[in-house]
Design a protein around this nucleic acid. Structure first.
Lengths: 343, 343
DNA sequence: TCTACTTGCGCAAACGATTGTTCAGATCGC
DNA sequence: GCGATCTGAACAATCGTTTGCGCAAGTAGA
């Protein structure tokens, strides 16, 4: 691992007394090569004694394969994405790929990010996580014929791995209904996006299945920030005539904002109003009261996206659109039966 | 950006009617080249019309410079590291570098991670974030003569960017003292590590400066998990004869655990016991009561580490060990004057 | 007008691998 | 014993750049 004279195939070949091409066939080549046992042993021996490490650059230049995946995320400090990154990195590593990360400011449209990754760095494929549906981007990637997988959302038939947010929302509402709640509000993300739509469907679906009316005045968009969640909660508190007894929050982040707003208003969680959030992460246990959540497989989403992308790159014709089901509830302290006088 | 026939320097040169070497000198070379204005214009024009993007692989092969930094982190889903990653990515991008990430399981010692990055991927340098001092690793990197920068800790004179945790701890304690507290406990991380030592020094330093005794029974190690923080708080509650009226927690995570334990014990925060934490992130505002924190420049740490590494790579002889001072307090709801009867 | 620079650019050799082709020697059938 | 076949390994081109060197033309000085 000395820097000044990195050992190359040439050194290995010289030591083993063979041509570099022969060394290459043993060390890097496909298995079906005709090489004598004797030479193979000498080459392996030489490679080991010199601590040979192939130069990925040279190999990539020749073969046009970098074994590198480009990962574009809108925010690193969102648990949804950090867990997904971790899953993707692990899965990629298992299959011999590395990950080149790039940040993409969601507000500042900049297709250059993808082009730099694909054109200059020659990544083999792109993992695109984003908060909203970006149809232009998808068209560009398709036109460029570069393998890509969408993460955290699904658009048309483009390859993607997303969460089954509809089921997650349904499960969340069902838990509240099982506790006895009949008036359940929904603090949504953005209603128009892929996940926003799915949550809404799950929320209404669960209510209807229980024979409850779908009341749009109980739904309040909040975006994906703490403050957004708090404001949405305040709006619900002032607007709703009989207050809801429970709330389904789109994400951990908006749930915590909502809880803060309830504290401010002097409303006890869960005694007066229960709160359940979609997604689970360590921070759910850290807020007060600890949040009951619907567990979603964030890490698996990253892993699955990486797997799918690699399958795509390596030429399989894999199933293209995956939706990962939630993996159950983490019942903590923020949900309870409704107050007795609410009936 | 079509895939099948990527445009190379040869294409540009042909279109401009010059040799590839000439095109290279204009497009990639250093500024001080002797080229006619006329040729330069033709080449630039050709490059633009063909949408030429240089192949970083080929360039790297020739120049032995990849303009890529390897970033090794022990956990992606820790706010300390996700913010640092974001800072590092942004700073690197500003200087034309990309970041290749690798996870390194802190429990599973595996030097291979670094070797793969340096040997196979040929990154220009390594950004090493870790939870504990890893002297072997440092020796290896030094021996390999590969530029590296330690993040979030400092060991000897190795290049590093860490937080001035000692000042952070001191500032935290000073805030508590200013509110009138005289009996301040410390929920520490791990006492032996770089940051653990620094926090302890800051904590004792502030107490001594105020003429207060240094009482080791008020210091309780907790590790870096929510549950660790809770257990440490419980131990303090049972052990300390007059209870402390305030607590300095090593991190956001242990602070939330501590608060949970206080809630369980029926102790009101901040009325009976104040809590202040080191580090600041959105979740600080989300716990109840909202945490007062000492703000530390996590994103700047990542950025500064990347900057320093790039300086190192590009041959400057920059100041090697940086300690970033905290940037003040975020005073929220978890600190208040001590109860009147505590004096 | 002749030498001596300067200028602008092309030639060709790298960088470190992969891979199609060639080629010498061994093996085989007859 | 001789041509055909097979085997194992070397030869050489190639991927897309960068860069030392040399060469022709132009310019200047004497």
């Amino acid at each position: 691992m000395s820097r000044d004279h990195r050992v190359s195939l040439k050194d290995v070949a010289k030591l083993a007394g063979v041509d570099v091409s022969t060394a290459s066939r043993i060390l890097g080549g496909k298995p079906g090569q005709r090489i004598s046992e004797e030479a193979r042993a000498r080459i392996l021996e030489a490679a080991k004694s010199l601590q040979y490490q192939p130069n990925a650059l040279a190999r990539a230049l020749r073969t046009a394969r970098t074994f590198t995946l480009g990962l574009v995320v809108p925010q690193f400090d969102n648990p949804v994405f950090s867990l997904a990154i971790r899953g993707a990195e692990a899965a990629a590593a298992r299959r011999g790929y590395s990950i080149l990360i790039a940040h993409r400011d969601p507000d500042h449209i900049d297709a250059g990010t993808y082009e730099r990754l694909a054109g200059t760095h020659r990544v083999d494929g792109l993992l695109a996580a984003s908060l909203d549906d970006d149809r232009n981007l998808i068209e560009d990637l398709k036109a460029a014929q570069i393998p890509f997988v969408l993460m955290n959302r699904s658009v048309g038939t483009s390859p993607s791995v997303a969460l089954d947010t509809e089921s997650a929302a349904r499960i969340g509402v069902e838990h509240l209904l099982a506790l006895g709640h009949r008036r359940v509000a929904h603090i949504a993300g953005r209603l128009e996006g892929f996940n926003g739509q799915a949550r809404l469907a799950g929320y209404y679906g669960a209510l209807q299945a229980a024979g409850l009316p779908a009341d749009p005045s109980l739904v309040e968009p909040a975006g994906y920030s703490v403050e957004g969640g708090a404001e949405a909660m305040r709006r619900l508190l002032t607007r709703c005539a009989p207050l809801p007894t429970a709330v389904l929050a789109a994400t951990l982040v908006s749930a915590t904002g909502a809880i803060a707003a309830l504290h401010e208003a002097g409303i006890s969680v869960p005694r007066q109003i229960s709160v359940i959030a979609i997604h689970d992460a360590p921070i759910a246990a850290m807020v007060y009261p600890a949040l009951t959540t619907v567990r979603t497989p964030l890490e698996a989403m990253g892993a699955s996206a990486a797997e799918l992308l690699i399958d795509l790159i390596e030429g399989g014709t894999p199933e293209a659109v995956r939706l990962l089901p939630p993996s159950g509830l983490s019942i903590r302290k923020s949900t309870a039966p409704p107050p007795l006088d609410s009936a």
